[in-house]
Computed example of a mutant assay.
Amino acid sequence: MKKRKDYWQRMKEIYDIHTHIIPGVDDGADTLKTAKKMIRREYADGVRTIVLTPHFRKGMFESPMTKVQAGYQKVQELAAELAPDLQVLLGCEFHVNTEMVQMLKHGERPTLNGTSCVLTEFSQLHTFQFIENSCHELLTNGYTPVIAHAERYPTLQKNMDYLERLHDMGAYIQMNADSISGADGLRMKWFCKKVMKRDLLHFVGSDAHNMKNRMPQMGRCAEYMEKHMGRDYTKQILIRNPKKMLRKTVR
């Protein structure tokens, strides 16, 4: 236990850019009590910047922005009570639809902390051509897609060259902490390691939804990454890259 505690003391500037902590707006935290527990866990794991990214998906998750903003304010207050050095920002996990660009232009859903970057979600049934075309549309309209949990899409799992094409065209790649550390299974862990070895990963997010089966575990991921990829790489992905992205100094 002492070894793990010492580790968190050394790595305590981590960014978590993908979370579902705002209560009652999607399938994430159900109450403020749960949100508070999630924030405490993040802080204990060395996270100092959390981006709240509630789902937006037509016909499934369409909470009004007034409700999202009110929830965001409450989570900010919880974070301020916990620690003065904990920063909480707002974004959205936007499931791709034909009106996505127009909705972003009209401010109907937020980008990541007001930057040009959009946490972009696809379906497991989407083809690579659809994913590529959607990313191209965002890019040509001034937005940078951050592909949410890219390791989950079968078309990318089957052909890593597709992932490299998305990377090269200007999209960012985000993978989930539990996928990297092995909490989501050995097959996912193996795939994520290949992605990191090919230097295709930009960001990691916990994609945390609760404190039961989908809790935030950024610390476990950081420890795994440092062991297998080195400390400098780990700091690049968990600290330096998201810091630059959220300050709008992308690419």
Rank of each mutant, 00 (worst) to 15 (best):
K243P: 00
A177G: 11
G24H: 00
Q236S: 12
E13N: 13
L112F: 08
L112W: 10
Y153P: 06
K2I: 15
T115F: 02
P54V: 04
R41G: 04
A222P: 09
A222K: 05
G91L: 05
M225S: 09
A208P: 04
R251G: 07
I21R: 02
N213S: 14
K158W: 08
E226A: 10
A171T: 07
T127Y: 10
K74L: 12
P54G: 01
V101P: 02
L32Y: 07
F94D: 11
A79Q: 07
Y162I: 08
T53S: 10
R40H: 11
P23Q: 03
E137M: 11
G24Q: 03
K3A: 13
M211C: 13
M211F: 05
P154M: 05
L163G: 08
H55I: 04
Y233D: 06
L201I: 13
H202W: 12
M218E: 00
R4E: 15
V146P: 02
F94V: 10
Q236A: 14
P23W: 01
M100E: 10
N176E: 11
R57I: 11
D45C: 07
L119P: 06
A29M: 05
E93H: 10
H167A: 12
K235A: 09
K189N: 15
Y72A: 02
N113D: 14
S179M: 04
F56Y: 15
Y15C: 01
M218K: 00
A70F: 07
L82V: 03
D30W: 02
A70V: 03
M218A: 01
N241F: 11
C221G: 03
Y162S: 10
H95V: 08
E137L: 12
P84C: 01
P23E: 05
K5W: 11
V25C: 03
K33C: 07
E77C: 10
E42G: 05
L166M: 12
I17F: 00
Q157W: 08
E62K: 04
Q76A: 01
V118W: 09
T34D: 14
K194D: 13
T140F: 10
Y7E: 14
I147H: 02
Y224W: 14
Q174Y: 06
E93D: 14
Y143V: 04
D26C: 01
F122G: 08
K243Y: 12
F130R: 09
